[in-house]
Every structure is written in C-alpha cells, then in structure tokens.
Design a protein around this nucleic acid. Structure first.
Lengths: 247, 247
DNA sequence: CAGTGGTCTAGACCACTTC
DNA sequence: AAGTGGTCTAGACCACTGG
C-alpha cells in the first residue's frame, strides 16, 4: 500500500488525492463501490480527518467520488469522471475520438480587430489584438477553420511562440504564459461557410455547418481569448459537456 | 451588519455564504475588490477559521470569489458569477435574454424507445421510457422543438405531472422528484428540420438549424434524461457556458 | 516585517443509515 | 447501537505578498 511522504513538498491531502485517483484509474475501486471510510483513511494514512476530508471534497468536486450521508463515499462512473475537465480543447477532443489532431497556422499578425473582437476582449483604445488563423485537421482531414484573437499586450508570449501552434493546443500555450482559462462562453449557430472557408476545408459552398464563437475568461473574469470556428456539418460533431447544477 | 444565528438549523458556514452572497449581489462588494480577510471574518462572525474557509471555498467553487495567496480573497466579475449554474435550462436562458418563456406539451406517453434512446438511458429489457414532446416559445414565437425521454420506473412522478410542463422547467421538476441533474453531455449538429418540425415551428423546410442531443446524468453517473432538440437557425442562438479547466 | 491565504492537527458533537 | 459523513472548534506552522 502506498504511503504519504511527510518529506515530500506536496501537501498531504494532495498526495492522498493522487493515491486514490490512481486506485480508481487502475480499477482497484470500481464505480459505485465504497472507498474506505474517513476514519479508516485517517488510520491508514496517519493524517487528521480534516486532511482526509480536504482530499475527498476535492475529488467530489472533480467528479471522481460522490458522498451519501450515513452510507459512505463512492466512486463515480467513468463517464462523469472524464467529463469534468478541459473540454474545449479541440486537440484533446479529436484524440479522444481516436484520431490524430493536426493543423496548419495560416496567419499570425497584430490587428486592431473588429468592434466585436474589441468588445469581447475589452480592449482599450490603443490596444491591439493578436490574430491567429488555423485550419485544424483530424487524421489529415480538415475539420475546422479557426480564428483566434488574444489581447496583445497581455499575450505577447503567444505571439512570439505562434509558430509552434501547428498541432499544439492554444489553451496549454496560454496556460504556460500565465493566461489560464477558467470559464468559456460559447455561442453556436448553424451557418453556411464563407467562400474562403469552403475552399480551405474543401467542402461545397452550400453545405451548412456550425459557427461557434467562444470567449474565454480567466479566474477573475478578465477576457483572455476570443475565437470564431467553423465546423463543416459533414465532418465533425460538436460535443460539449457541462455541469448542469452544483452545490 | 447581519449576524449568524447559532439557533438557526442551517449550518454556520452556509449562513456565512448567504450573507456574503447577498453583499456581493447588493453591490456592497464590487468585482475585483477584496472581501474581509479570513481572520477578520473569524472575529466579525465569531466562528472558527475552518468554518470561514468552508464558506469561502464553496463560494470560490461557485465562481463568486477567487483567492490570491498572500494578497487576499476577491469578488469575481458578474459574468463569471452567473455562468456557473444551471445552464441548460432553456426557460432560464430565454428569461435571461429578456423574453417570456412558454411552451406547449404535445405528447406525453410511455414508449419502448429507439435503440439510441434505450442505450443512452441504459434501459433494461423490460423497462420503458417516458416520451415528452414540446414546442418551446419565447415571447410566443416558437424557437425549439424538443423531445425528452426519461427512464420510466424511476421517473414515474414526472409522467404523472407532465401536464404542468407547458412552460415549466423539466429540470426543476426532475429535481423535485429526486432526479437531480449533475452532468450533461451535449452533441450539436447542423441539420435541416424534419417535415413535422418545419410545420410546427413555421419555418421553411430548407432552413438549416441545430440539432442538439443531450444526455443528463445524476451525481453517480446514472442517466436520468435524454433529449433531442431542434433549434431553427434564424430564431435562436444556442449558448453554452462551461468551465474550461479546474483545480 | 506584518498580513494574507495554504496546510494540518486532535479533538468534539451532530444527523443519517443500517441492523 | 454502531458506523457513516456533516459541522465546528482552537489552536499551529508554513508560503507568499507587499511595503
């Protein structure tokens, strides 16, 4: 049985979380079965109950466990476990469907941006936006035309590293630049492709698809990205998972 | 200044949450301003720090507050505050856009259900599904054709109360029947309406729209509803808000 | 340095479930 | 009655931020 290391700089509750996560992932704890009770975990790992509860509470929030008063703490089904994190990364989504994500960066430039862009990013008069244009692919097939806008002074690092963005995830690059996505608002419409989109995606100009606009905010509610993506209807089913209610 | 009541059956941390929520909503605590520090709250409300922290941690999870180590705890922007709860209720969404939600229940019946339905709801051989068909309206204009399926033995109460479903929220009715939505998976496609949909929504048969399928699960990962909704492209912009990353 | 939040302890009592 | 999770206390020490 793995133990917690008091010499480890990682907090005890965090180590306990990792141990439990691993046991769940490895299948030692099956869905709908009870994990050891809180007093048992206290004894087994020699930590206080508050520490155990912090670990369990976070795992509950992450969708790995659920509690029932008087009965115990149980393992959630894998579907719930998976659906709680990082859902708008297109690369991840493609990989999850068993295909190879790829992409081509067509444009990276500094622009003033349309009124919509400036409004979404809350740009001040003198501020500019970084504009990135990409065609995204799954197993080499083009499945989306994506235009991203980022606030310029804040996201300077992204502009410098834009070349790496062929297949890479913009979100992960943003996170490494201190722009951590926390909330996203997505607006989805049925629409026809523009001439340019039809050409680049190699679809007929009358094939309807989805136009998804997405504004991403950090923890404090400041906008850190705005994107417009066109998905041809025949190529990609747009999937979203969200929490319906909470607390 | 409001105080916490030790005679109140509601927990102290919960009362504290409500007090802070109300101060935020009333504008006494503006976005990006710091709330009183934890030791201050301890003194002011005469509770232990663990109690204060439980209240604050939950408010952070609900998107009302964010913390910065060494600096303080701050109020999130309203956009983040609003976007964390109950997002798939169409009625709520319509109301948020300043229109009056309404609806008409066309069908409520027990059916065996298609393979898709049975699979999504994980029905056993002998189990049936409740099928509800509704036209949803905003300011009397039809904006969506919705078909819901619920697992029959579990959702008996819904079947009996189906008549109330004109304008009411199915989710809130489900919650009152012990079927609490926790996670939803949504799949969105661009599509043309069926003949029946075009007729009921009074749109041309060649006007593309969105076909959204949604499977809803409870806390434990058991499916509690499956729905298929058609939104005509010209009438409604489909809006989704989700958390991108967490913990 | 003082003040903030982050982690942790060792208790206590309560409410709910099961037998 | 025994076991579970839910709430609460009164401390402690640490890590990070700012002047």
């Amino acid at each position: 049985m793995p133990m917690l290391e008091r010499s480890n700089p990682l907090p005890l509750y965090y180590q306990l979380k990792e141990v439990l996560k691993q046991q769940i992932r490895a299948g030692h704890l099956a869905p709908h079965t009870a994990i050891p009770s809180e007093p048992e975990l206290v004894a087994r790992y020699r930590v206080s109950r508050a520490t155990v509860r912090q670990a369990l509470t976070e795992l509950v929030h992450e969708g790995l466990l659920y509690r029932q008063h008087g009965k115990g703490t149980f393992v959630c089904e894998p579907r719930v476990q998976q659906t709680l994190s990082e859902l708008t990364s297109l690369s991840e989504d493609i990989r999850r469907r068993g295909k190879q994500p790829g992409g081509l960066l067509l444009v990276s430039e500094l622009v003033r941006g349309s009124e919509t862009v400036r409004e979404r990013l809350r740009l001040l008069d003198e501020e500019q936006a970084i504009r990135l244009v990409r065609v995204r692919t799954a197993d080499e097939v083009p499945i989306a035309y994506e235009v991203d806008y980022l606030p310029y002074p804040r996201a300077t690092g992204i502009y410098q590293r834009a070349k790496e963005l062929g297949e890479g995830s913009l979100y992960s690059m943003m996170a490494s630049e201190g722009l951590t996505p926390y909330i996203a608002e997505q607006n989805v419409k049925a629409a026809l492709p523009s001439a340019r989109e039809a050409e680049l995606l190699r679809i007929p100009p009358d094939e309807p698809g989805l136009r998804v606009t997405c504004t991403t905010f950090d923890q404090t509610g400041s906008p850190i990205a705005y994107s417009e993506v066109f998905y041809p209807g025949s190529r990609y089913e747009y999937m979203v998972t969200l929490r319906v209610a909470r607390s």
